[in-house]
Simulated scan of single mutants.
Amino acid sequence: MNYRVLGKTGFNVSEISLGTWQVGGRWGEPFNEQTAETIINSAIDAGVNFIDTADVYSDGLSEAAVARVVKSRSEEVFLATKCGRQIQPHVSQGYTPESLTKYVEQSLQNMKLETLDLIQLHCPPTEVYTRPEIFETFDRLKEQGKIRNLGVSVELVDEALMAMKYPNVTTVQVIFNMFRLKPSEQLFSAAKENNIGLIVRVPLASGLLTGKMSHETTFQPEDHRTFNRNGEAFDKGETFSGVDFDLGLDAVEELKQLFPGQEPLAAWALRWILMFPEVSTVIPGASRPEQITSNLNAAALPPLTSEQMEGVQSVYDKFIKQTVHQLW
């Protein structure tokens, strides 16, 4: 495992880590504690030392499982969680110092911790980034010893740039993959300049970039890949990175031609992200232990050639850019 510094936090984190949106149960399936613990232990066994969760993942069960496993281990593992998505309706007015403090304290209870390594605002409405009192709240929480660091999880590049203006923001979590290239244009250089740790989520575009799906693939009714393709429940960019499913499959077929051989496209998609030195860590999810091994194998692949990097850009320009680039 290779490690990279997570910006101003100073944490030395595994470049491929673990996101836990679907740990312990695939989208639409109930949470399973035993499965979750097996996956998390497998990740730590392989050198993962950064795990990202959220209070809304299985209503706190994901937070509890992650912390329980980490406490049973001797390794140092950094835990990141998120707050704010419980606010309904999810509007700026719902974000108050009181509500956010309550959510942080609830996460501490869920995880049975005294201090959170990293708390992240969970894709708040854009207006929240214009409210200094929200960010000042986390200074007080840090003074009280309840958090070590503040980060933001964003939908828009512009939101990330706004967040960086607050000196207590240490990390930005953003969607970046072969179907979402916009962050590399301006955000990455700004993150480097401001010493912001970049956490990359949705690296496989909700499974599209595994190369295992077809036009006949279907999903359970409770799976966001069924009900959120047009943003019915939350930002549509979280589902297939906002790319039309059938169009994405056509693009995947051309991407496969760039990477002939034994390794699946998913591994190359992760390795492609690691070609960007500004990225601190990538957090693919896993619903089975064997997916941990598959994800981590990507770090051992050789660097992409300049021809492959240019090929990915060409596929993006041909299939994807016109419909999604300006949206996020």
Rank of each mutant, 00 (worst) to 15 (best):
T20R: 01
W21P: 07
E29N: 11
P30Q: 07
T38H: 12
T38C: 10
N41H: 14
S42Q: 12
V48T: 06
A67K: 00
V70M: 01
E75Q: 12
V77H: 00
T81C: 00
K82T: 02
K82N: 07
G84H: 06
P89D: 05
G94K: 02
G94R: 03
S99V: 14
L100Q: 05
K102S: 13
V104Q: 00
L116N: 03
H122F: 00
P125W: 11
T126I: 12
I134W: 08
E143I: 12
K146D: 01
G151V: 01
A160P: 01
K182R: 15
Q186H: 15
K192W: 11
E193K: 15
N194S: 14
I196A: 09
I196N: 02
V200D: 07
V200K: 04
R201H: 05
E222I: 08
H224D: 14
N230M: 14
G231M: 04
A233C: 10
T239A: 02
L249A: 08
D250Q: 13
V252S: 04
W272D: 05
M275P: 06
V279E: 08
S280V: 07
R288T: 13
R288Y: 09
I292D: 02
N295W: 07
N295D: 10
L304W: 09
E310G: 12
V315S: 05
I320P: 05
T323Q: 15
W328S: 12
